[in-house]
Design a protein around this nucleic acid. Structure first.
Ligand SMILES: [Mn+2]
Ligand SMILES: [Mn+2]
Ligand SMILES: [Zn+2]
Ligand SMILES: [Zn+2]
Lengths: 144, 144
DNA sequence: TGCTCAAAGATAATAATTCTCTTTTAGTAA
DNA sequence: TTACTAAAAGAGAATTATTATCTTTGAGCA
């Protein structure tokens, strides 16, 4: 996924294409492990040694607002971000803070079918995702 | 659910039964809407006008640790707590911060069945729950 | 009834995030 | 290409949630 792609996405949303926005957007996508603001800052330090933390938070907010990123719910006092917008689920490790993506179309179909029949009264569903909590086997943690 | 019940639960876990612990535990259970530490403090102000916020956080931590409460993941920078331990899901309102419980045994069975067949390799599942994001119809918000 | 250790209270410290203000710059139009 | 301008970035202070430290209190137990 090239830098040009990220610039384009920003443009499509009517956002000014700044080096900071591109770098932050790209960082979340490349890091892939649902990074925190801090992870992102570390990651872009080389090319942006003096980026302001306020900028990072503001950019993340606006990317989320413009639906180019999503926040990832978790039970720590630090927000995490996700560049994958398509429907997917998350594996939460209760030992480490690792969060991995879990994609399963068959499961998605089952759930979609179920909720197309059974409506939740008084609530309009926009999105359904699973949070799967458990533990990774140490040896199978794929860092790349 | 009587106060005696909460005292008993604490005792069963080998925790000292203090008025603060009982009050906080009871508050989360009675409030029912996945309160924050702050909500809890407000709620118990009458009976415990001088409770220390540090105490509230420490008690909440230890109740979670002892599996008498659960943290509720959400995408705000404030933790929320749940006294319902049995398997259930959450409806997240994207307009307000309302989080409501959603219980559905049929759905649980479908998901359990699915995962009993299809294992996730490299990951030992402990718990699966859905986060259902959407919007409540204003008129059907049940505050009690 | 008194001991003792764990818990509560008070308050300072920390960490994540937001805010305010000044400077810079991307986009646009002369 | 240049100049203008609104929006964004930077710097740093402020805020908020949470945690830590230290002293005092009190629950459980002999
Ligand atoms: Mn914090
Ligand atoms: Mn915070
Ligand atoms: Zn993800
Ligand atoms: Zn709940």
């Amino acid at each position: 996924m090239t830098t040009e792609y990220f610039r384009e996405q920003l443009k499509l949303k009517g956002l000014k294409v700044t080096p900071q926005r591109v770098a932050i957007f790209e960082a979340v996508a490349n890091l892939r492990n649902h990074p925190t603001a801090d992870h992102i800052i570390d990651y872009i330090k080389n090319n942006h040694p003096n980026i302001s933390v306020g900028t990072v938070y503001k950019v993340l907010d606006s990317l989320v607002e413009n639906q180019l990123l999503k926040k990832v719910k978790n039970e720590k006092d630090v927000m995490r971000y996700d560049a994958i917008l398509q429907q997917h689920h998350h594996l939460y490790c209760s030992k480490t803070d690792q969060i991995e993506d879990f994609v399963d179309y068959e499961l998605d179909k089952i759930i979609t079918d179920y909720f197309s029949k059974k409506k939740i009264k008084g609530f309009k569903v926009k999105e359904i995702s699973l949070q799967i909590t458990g533990e990774f086997n140490n040896n199978s943690i794929h860092t790349k």
